Computed example of a mutant assay.
Amino acid sequence: MNVDMTTTIPAGANQTTPKSKASVDYQSFLKLLIAQMKNQDPTQPMDSTQYVAQLATFSQVEQSVQMNTKLDSILQSSALSQADALIGHSITSADGKTTGTVSEVRLSSSGLIAVLENGTEMAVGPGVTVGPAAS
């Protein structure tokens, strides 16, 4: 059984990374909207359709952020539920130099880490081969 990258967590999924200056989260969007409302020309207030459109955009941004958080959680749960299937099985690294029986599996921010009976740690990724339990 070959294990592919569909069971691993993307790098950084569980880490906080500095935000790019180009990216705008929903908090920034809300601050921008409030500043726009405070500084609008009282003689020419914002059209109500523009205001509703901006609120709808804000709602979409917030929902997208929440959905990404939930998807990260689902990905982690899925990887953990599949990880126990590796325990007791024979595993060989992509280069073929490391082989052994999996004694435990850990989930890190970079994906699944298989710990062999001899204590060697191996990242489960492309090219790694998992076979039946050694007799």
Score class of each variant (00 low, 15 high):
2 N>V: 13
4 D>Y: 11
5 M>V: 10
5 M>C: 07
10 P>G: 14
11 A>P: 14
11 A>D: 09
11 A>R: 14
12 G>V: 07
12 G>P: 03
12 G>W: 00
13 A>R: 14
14 N>Y: 05
16 T>R: 15
23 S>C: 11
23 S>L: 14
26 Y>T: 08
27 Q>G: 13
28 S>W: 00
29 F>E: 03
30 L>K: 10
33 L>C: 02
34 I>S: 12
34 I>G: 12
35 A>G: 12
37 M>Y: 01
44 Q>P: 02
44 Q>T: 10
45 P>I: 01
46 M>I: 04
47 D>Q: 08
47 D>M: 02
48 S>R: 08
48 S>E: 11
48 S>W: 10
49 T>D: 09
49 T>P: 00
51 Y>T: 01
51 Y>A: 11
53 A>G: 15
53 A>M: 12
54 Q>G: 02
56 A>Q: 14
58 F>H: 08
64 S>T: 13
67 M>E: 13
67 M>N: 14
67 M>I: 05
68 N>R: 10
68 N>V: 04
69 T>C: 00
70 K>M: 04
71 L>A: 08
71 L>K: 03
72 D>P: 01
73 S>R: 10
74 I>K: 03
74 I>R: 02
75 L>C: 05
77 S>T: 09
78 S>P: 00
84 D>Y: 08
85 A>Y: 06
87 I>A: 00
87 I>V: 15
88 G>L: 10
88 G>K: 07
89 H>P: 01
90 S>P: 00
97 K>L: 09
97 K>W: 07
98 T>C: 06
98 T>H: 05
99 T>I: 01
100 G>V: 07
104 E>K: 15
104 E>A: 15
105 V>D: 08
106 R>A: 06
107 L>N: 12
108 S>W: 00
109 S>D: 11
109 S>C: 00
113 I>H: 10
114 A>D: 06
114 A>W: 03
119 G>E: 03
123 A>C: 01
123 A>W: 02
126 P>W: 04
129 T>P: 01
129 T>K: 11
133 A>D: 02
134 A>Q: 13
